[in-house]
């Protein structure tokens, strides 16, 4: 655990000592803030269902930027050799780096805690629904970050890792959309694999344990693949 913590802490410091994470956060907050205010003014509904969906949509663009450096940069600089020969397992390296990215994402979300506070200031929001909504946003964001981490393990170029991660996430948006507009068996299959369709219930306050399991296992599966990719480099 201390080894994971060492990797995690190094990455968290790298994130927060650089201005880049703050700029991403500013952009994220500007857009989510705009969506929140516009939705509230237009409908006057005390709910955040649509805002949650917007948050995860915007994170499609930010997640690859946050993760593209994580493993690709180590490989480009040659520091991955030190990491791979250090008394650490590849799993510990991947989990430490992934958790650091998730921490940055949680920091983004923590600031958006102002939105429910504003709803509370003027009305009576359903706190449990807001709680499950945030759980959905966290799980979807973690899945997107796992996609970015896997992309970063496949190349030594940050740019390529970023574009690859973004491409895959864009594809997931296409799947989300196709799941809505298709019919029959295809619709059922697409709905089953669509990340956003799986999170919709949580945004609405409905906890489907199967959706929860899917989102967690999707992230776990991608991290597992990342470990396999890194391991392959170790013995190849």
């Amino acid at each position: 655990m201390t080894k994971v913590w060492a990797v995690y802490w190094r990455e968290v410091q790298a994130y927060f000592l650089s201005p880049v994470a703050y700029v991403f956060m500013a952009v994220f907050l500007l857009l989510t803030g705009w969506f929140f205010a516009a939705r509230l003014f237009a409908t006057q509904y005390i709910e955040m269902q649509v805002v949650f969906a917007n948050m995860t949509f915007m994170f499609v663009f930010i997640a690859p930027l946050l993760t593209m450096r994580l493993l690709a940069e180590e490989r480009r600089m040659g520091t991955d050799e030190f990491l791979l020969t250090a008394p650490l397992t590849v799993g510990q390296i991947v989990v430490g780096k992934f958790l650091a990215a998730v921490t940055v994402y949680l920091a983004f979300l923590a600031v958006t805690g102002v939105y429910p506070w504003l709803l509370y200031r003027y009305g009576f929001p359903d706190w449990v629904t807001i709680g499950t909504g945030y759980l959905g946003v966290i799980l979807v964001g973690a899945a997107y970050l796992a996609v970015g981490v896997l992309a970063s393990s496949l190349t030594n170029s940050q740019m390529v890792a970023g574009l690859l991660g973004f491409g895959v996430l864009l594809l997931s948006l296409v799947v989300d959309r196709a799941a809505v507009v298709s019919t029959g068996l295809l619709a059922k299959v697409l709905q089953a694999i669509s990340i956003s369709a799986r999170a919709n219930g949580l945004y609405m306050g409905v906890l489907n344990v199967a959706d929860l399991f899917y989102l967690i296992s999707f992230t776990g599966g991608l991290l597992f693949l990342t470990v396999r990719v890194m391991e392959r480099r170790r013995w190849l």
Binding site: V128, G205, V206, L207, A210, Y214
Partner: peptide, 15 residues
């Protein structure tokens, strides 16, 4: 996941 989709419970937590 396929098994979970068949048996996992769905809980309505809305107020």
């Amino acid at each position: 996941n396929v098994a979970a989709a068949r048996v996992a419970p769905v809980i309505d937590l809305t107020r």
